[in-house]
Nucleic acid binder design. Structure first.
Lengths: 302, 302
DNA sequence: ATGCTGTCATAGGCTGCATCTATCACGTTG
DNA sequence: CAACGTGATAGATGCAGCCTATGACAGCAT
């Protein structure tokens, strides 16, 4: 059985006339006659009572019509829904973002994203890098924003912008007197985030402390979030590096910021599954973020 | 668009694997690949995200699946209605039966069904109530036999016969001395089937133990089938209620049976989808069962 | 009666498309 | 690095739907 046959059936039921029904279907009269005959043979039921002047649907035909109409309607619904879904820049877009980036980036980009991609329903999801990549691979996210390279042939990524780190100092810290702080000078009393945050590893690497923490404070005080870490620095427990986008929040917490001598920083990337079909949406989101952040980062490093 | 394409789509959504979906459709893998690709082009939407190891449905695909299922179901309804119009009592009839009923009922009714409905190809399917209702709603069964009420406006049912429960006792059990056993007297050392069997709940309710099991044995020993439960009773682990039709099997296992004081029992019903077109077949099967079982149950309670 | 007209069925040829087998490309796995 | 599994691609083939042309038949007019 074929949907075409069902359309023929519906047309015949409406017109009760082979020639007119055929014209309504855009086929010749013999075509419709033959196909309906075949349908009758397939179903084993007479669908039309043919007389020389007219062809009327049988009772059996009327029993089937409702189902035929429903089947045709459902297929047309498929076409209609597909038409709505056709735009890759429309629909839900689940974007994972690492916790040291999300709260500072999102306020900057929500409005530009809504302007550039009004039909994209952005659903941010905040988690650490490893969890984000798991969810990305599990098709639970469409793309992720992170600050590390991604590897594996199943994923692809693209850099969006470079985000410089800044030295975060308690107001009464000796280094406050310097206009520029050398990364290595922070190593002595550096504080870092808990395991799993990429910022932790990057901070330690930039300051030359890529092994275990020597400071007793670093072991005892575990900052599980960047705001907590900022509070700890502000309270004088030590120093740290913060990502540039968090500068405002750091200053609000009463922290003194200084640029870094070696200009340590991180590159924020957008990553996606290599075979993700809505590549256009990924690129569009990436373009908006890169454009929005370009000026911001330039201003910060100037 | 073609119904065939929709079937391919459904198979792919189910298997998430081109080769297996193709086999399920009875076509070669390239055929299914090409046709699905064409469908994607027609709809203008990516339906599957292909990676080297797997192909997962996209969000768009999932939005379309319901309509596709409905369209296919309607065309199959057309075939079913046609068959019904030709001869409602012919063709395949997939009948779900709960496990505590099937092995004891089927031997009794196979011959009468074949005599009364020689053209009906009965395909029994044994599973627990919830699974049966799922399959019934999914059009994978035509009707089900169960021992509970069904609810929901999409289903209908009809009682066929009342099946009394019997007390099942180990031969050396103190209650063996009684000609009639009170349900409540069994509560102390009652054994029941694993979760999911309606007989479990009905047994507990009849014996006034509708909460958690007090018996240590009830918790430790889990009978996943009625024959196993019978063996456990025969071995002296405890007592239970069995459905009347299983009396023969119970006695074969060396169990002593006694009628129940309050005549606890269950009502076996046949249930079907409210819009199932072959209602006549359901009624005919129901009539045969009810007729065959009427005498049997009367003899048992006499 | 006998054409004439309208209707549906039939015949024969053409075309397109779904299908197959064979093969390639590629990533995973041992 | 070789073997395997998976999906994509290419070329050949056959069936099915389509068309035009024509037939069969009934009603209707002259």
């Amino acid at each position: 059985m074929n949907l075409r046959d069902l359309r023929y059936l519906l047309a015949m039921a409406e017109h009760e006339h082979f020639g007119r029904a055929a014209k309504a279907c855009g086929v010749s009269q013999p075509t419709l006659s033959v196909q309906l005959r075949k349908l009758e043979e397939l179903l084993g039921v007479a669908l039309f009572e043919r007389s020389s002047r007219t062809a009327t649907p049988t009772a059996a035909c009327r029993r089937l019509l409702g189902h035929a109409r429903a089947a045709v309607a459902e297929t047309e619904a498929i076409l209609a829904v597909a038409r709505d879904l056709r735009d890759p820049l429309a629909g839900r877009f689940r974007l994972g973002i690492i916790p040291t980036l999300a709260p500072y980036l999102l306020p900057l980009v929500f409005a530009p994203l809504r302007d550039a991609l009004p039909d994209l329903e952005l659903e941010p999801w905040e988690d650490q890098t490893a969890a984000l990549l798991d969810r990305l691979r599990a098709h639970e996210l469409d793309a992720v924003l992170l600050a590390t390279e991604v590897d594996g042939p199943d994923l692809a990524s693209r850099p969006l912008f470079a985000e410089p780190f800044l030295a975060a100092l308690p107001p009464d810290h000796p280094l406050v007197g310097h206009a520029v702080v050398a990364e290595a000078d922070l190593a002595r009393d550096i504080l870092v985030l808990a395991d799993g945050h990429c910022l932790r590893d990057q901070t330690l690497e930039a300051c030359g402390r890529n092994g275990a923490l020597g400071s007793a404070l670093g072991g005892a005080l575990r900052a599980s979030s960047l705001p907590t870490l900022l509070n700890m620095v502000a309270a004088g427990y030590g120093t740290t590096l913060i990502p540039g986008l968090a500068a405002g929040a750091a200053q609000d917490a009463g922290i003194v910021l200084r640029p870094l001598a070696a200009q340590a920083g991180r590159t924020v990337r957008i990553a996606w599954r290599a075979h993700f079909p809505r590549r256009a949406a990924v690129e569009a989101v990436g373009d908006v973020l890169a454009t929005r952040l370009r000026g911001f980062v330039q201003a910060m490093t100037a």
